[in-house]
């Protein structure tokens, strides 16, 4: 289990290789990579707005605490051999990596489901905020209700 919040980029291949090195009990690795998109999702019937860049801010201390908790929860729900969450902060350009989630398990369903769970929960529970730069200036990204709905799918009843 590992969590990193950093300004630097990450190398997806190198991270997965490091996670699985010598761990021959691992049968599958699932990963999610979030990238900076170069447009804002337009409303119905509207043209997309171009994004020049993005700045990510977070709440040091609480971020790591929430990410650890999310990771613990994934390990409680699924049988995992290794998990990794890397989230970047600071100034990013279109095409840059933002977030990496990796889950390794003996069996693919554990890895795939845990990976999906982790990114859905991270999006609604971890204290990060994005500000986008467009031709009209800087604007804070609004939270999406669809993200809440995706996270709620994992709520245990």
């Amino acid at each position: 289990m590992a969590i990193r919040v950093q300004e630097d980029d990450f190398d997806i291949g190198a991270e997965i290789k490091a996670l699985t090195l010598g761990r021959t009990e691992i049968g599958g690795v699932a990963s999610f990579v979030g990238l900076v998109r170069d447009f804002v999702d337009p409303g119905a019937g509207q043209e997309p707005t171009a994004i020049r860049g993005m700045t990510l801010e977070h709440y040091p201390g609480m971020t790591e605490k929430m990410l650890s908790r999310i990771e613990d929860e994934a390990n409680r729900r699924w049988t995992l051999d290794a998990t990794l969450i890397i989230h970047r902060v600071g100034a990013l350009a279109p095409g840059d990596n933002i977030v990496l989630v990796v889950c390794a398990a003996a069996h693919r369903q554990d890895a795939l489901q845990a990976c999906s769970f982790l990114i859905d929960w991270l999006k609604t529970q971890a204290p990060f905020w994005k500000s986008e730069s467009t031709a009209a200036g800087e604007q804070w990204v609004k939270a999406k209700e669809s993200d809440d709905a995706l996270a709620a799918r994992w709520q245990k009843t």
């Binding site: 979030g34 990510l56 977070h58 709440y59 609480m62 989230h87 933002i98 977030v99 990114i119 991270l122 999006k123 609604t124 529970q125 971890a126 204290p127 990060f128 905020w129 994005k130 804070w140 990204v141 609004k142 939270a143 993200d147």
Partner: peptide, 10 residues
């Protein structure tokens, strides 16, 4: 005590 908007990471 921290005040912030709904989170938008990931």
């Amino acid at each position: 005590v921290a005040l912030f908007p709904p989170v938008t990471g990931g």
